[in-house]
Amino acid sequence: MSDAEKARDTATVRTSWLLSTPALVVLTFAASGPLLIMLVYSFLTKGQYGNVEWVFSTEGWRSILYSEDIFDPGVFVWADAHLTIFWRSVKLSLMTTVLTLAVGFPTAWFIATRPPKSRALWLFLITIPFWTNLLIRTVAIFEVIRNEGVINSLLMWTGIISAPIQITYTDTAVFIGMAYVYLPLMVLPLFAAIDRFDMRLIEAAYDLYASRLAVLRRVILPIVRPGIIAGSILVFVPSLGAVVTPRILGGGKNMMIGNFIELQFGQGRNWPLGAALSMSLLVIVTVALLVYVRAANRESPHG
């Protein structure tokens, strides 16, 4: 390379950084930087009325897993309540992912196989809920399943039941609600994958004596797998960190990690624990994303 070429390359790279600087500054100030500060806070001592005292402590991290017996200092017991919350979060998130995949795949397939003109409309119909305020959608589903809501009113009116079925403020309510609000996140990447799928492959498979099930299992699913992985991650990650939906539908009792973190900065007044929990959640999400990236990369050579 000549000096002139080198100089031009250097100038181009410098421009790249210069142009990215405003975004990097805003993001460092109001997104990434605070995460580092939070990491520091997770190693401090909790303050009397919230906030922290600047004394190093691993109490925040330790108390995720076990707690000191109030009556018997020095005796540590497993923090069952914390583990229950973690377990519920993971369980509900996985269930949500499976349900949205089960109903989202046929939906995405349906959209992708519409004629081009009406396809845009069906896709638009999925996109509206996607961009609609999560709070509004949670309120909407809440009104359907609550004791005085449509389902219970209808069932009581027809005489099938005499007293309303309690759905709200249960794990089931949180599950239904999350599946409802996160479904578009599953359908959109699935649609993108199916849309790229060459439908002639199905004809080829039938031509080679494949049954319907074999076509689905051996041809369609392997090829649209990247879409399945992407959709699953897009549903699983926000489910795990969900706050609004479990708060409204779980009614404060059936907490998930998000609500529990929130609690530490409210009534709990335990910022170091909250910070440590947040970091843990971040680690879980990062691992999930890394798994996704690896799975996606493994897939790409096949096209």
Binding site: L24, A30, Y41, G241, M279
Partner: peptide
């Protein structure tokens, strides 16, 4: 730069929220 820009899409909202609470 890519990771920085897309970071808000990857980090759970509640995590960013409490981090901002602490910082601000």
């Amino acid at each position: 730069i890519y990771v920085m820009i897309n970071q808000p899409l990857m980090v759970p909202e509640i995590v960013t929220a409490v981090a901002l609470l602490i910082f601000f």
